[in-house]
Design a protein around this nucleic acid. Sequence first.
RNA 1: GGCGAGGUAGCUCAGUCGGUUAGAGCAUACGGCUCAUAUCCGUAGUGUCGGGGGUUCAAUUCCCUCCCUCGCUACCA
Length: 639
Amino acid sequence: MGKFYITTPIYYVNAKPHLGHAYTSIIADALNRFHLLMGDECFFLTGTDEHGDKIVKSAEANGQTPKEFVDEISGLFRNLWSDLDVKYSKFIRTTDAKHKACVQEILQRVYDNGDIYFDEYGGHYCVGCERFLTEKELVNGKCPEHDIEPEYIAEKNYFFRMSKYQDWLIDHINRNPDFIRPSQYRKEVLSLLESGALDDLCISRPKSRLTWGIELPFDDDFVCYVWFDALINYLSALGYPNGGNYEKFWPVANHLVAKDILKPHAIFWPTMLKAAGIDVYQRLNVHGYWLVKDTKMSKSLGNVIEPLKMMETYGLNAFRYFLLREMGFGSDSSFSEDALVGRLNADLANDLGNLFNRTLSMTHKYFGGKIPCPGDEGAEDAEIKKLGRDALTRYQESFLEMKFSVGLESLWELVRGLNKYIDETAPWTLYKNKDMSRLSTVMYVMLENMRKIAVHLWPVMPDASVKMLGQLGIVFDAEKVNLSKELDVWGLLESNVQVAEFSNLFPRVEVEKASHAGPAKKNGNAKDNGSGLVDFEDFQKLDLRVGTVVKVEKHPDADKLLIVQVDIGEDEVRQVVAGLAEFYSPEDLKGRQVVVVANLKPRKLRKQLSQGMILAVKDAKGMKLLTSTEQVVNGSKVS
RNA sequence: GGCGAGGUAGCUCAGUCGGUUAGAGCAUACGGCUCAUAUCCGUAGUGUCGGGGGUUCAAUUCCCUCCCUCGCUACCA
């Protein structure tokens, strides 16, 4: 059995969680779920980083003690992961007692090893900034922000002999091309290491300046520098130096970080491990930023997208799918509501959702909802099965390489292939011709492929996947799934099992497209409320009028459509193509008063122009027209 | 300034270890089907593959140079 250990950074709790945090955690979760389905034994670690200067300041600003403050924010993160279906194995906090003990253990080992020394460090300390400023930051010898001349303070501190391990690290990266990926970050780290001599790292802060941290085991006048403390969480969470988890999972440790913390993870951390006599982690996986209007998201710019808000508006499934599908791993990507809606409508609603729904619907029409027994397979079936095997193989390979976007694109080749397969096999014709044997095979091929797709989607959209499988009459059990076997196994779907009558997991959403042509419109924020409510002005945009049907004929090229001429008080009657033929005969309709949407954009329906829409209401029994309780003048407005 | 990434169809991007007509999705137009959520399938496209130069029988792909965008990093007096 394989093993897999994935970590997110421990998020710094000086501010609330944002989209960047959500993205990292969601890919970690997707990877973890993927490896679970591949049959690996997995450990997924996340948590919060709660020490350091900034935390103390943020707490003070909130009128709280550091402990109260971090408890609150840490809780926010945990709640968010629960809302995003992020299922971690452990949530670590750097204020945990076990973590502190582990940090001290490692510090002591490095100290005993002779790689920590005590030295004087001098610099320009600004009391306003509460930190040392570099020569370059000074303007006319003053701190530009506080306009005061910084004090020159000589301070004694402990330093980690990081420079000693520079050559070893360069060598290690060269020998292990996968150590840092994607490769652009590997190159960046190498050039950083090769260009200049690595400085030693200051790893202490005197308690006179900062008390909120972990004490150095060899000098209780100092606390540990926050990065040194934080990185060790990846080990302390496994119970290092004790415990089976360390031995089991550390050799397969995969760190996942955003590119802004590349340096601590790619340089500080491996050299720390080396100095402590611990093997380095297996891989560092680096992702890019989500940009909002081409600017990196930041709280101060006020363009932070609340992850929860997007999730509430469009659903968790679409949100997770979008994040994984849209961003090439390692590069930056733009986040926009339009793009999210585009993916939701095109990929999820039109392609996948509709495919699934039409499959279930046909199973009901032709087989009373029971999965049929397949007959002999023909060339078309062999072809789609091969397409499926290839697509799923690429999907799995891509996920192993963190290429989620490529993987999902491959999976959709199968989705599109199946839509085409339906078109070509035309089950409705087989049914009409009473070719039930062939029809059974075709429907079984569809249903079995839907099962395979649903299972593969579990890492990305766990909720939708479980629901899809449920609608196929399967109770999802991660233990029983093995994705690698899925490539060669066919026919796990049992015949005669009842499936759902329909599925609407991904309803289309209609969002008024933001104008790309000109400047932002006055009411550009109309869709921003996210509540699904419309303003009265929006309602007023609809021109609803009562009119009398003067003439009706059947649509020559469609079974369900009627061509209706309605007098809505204008010089000319309106022609409206309506989907009423199954419920009303032309004779029934003529002379009735109906409600018409008069300013609907004209559209051709099977070659016939339709200049409006007749309002009706549909329930299980059929379709009923809407009208006024009394006769009114044609053209009267509905309000 | 150095290093890295990128500049490919209207948009978002894939791709080419040099080789017959450069791809996908979205958007657009037209056609087809009716099982389906105004969904699906098909057809049609357009691209001096950032500019210029070089190597080659052949370059979008290799080399040089320049321009633009982004990131990291250093400050060259």
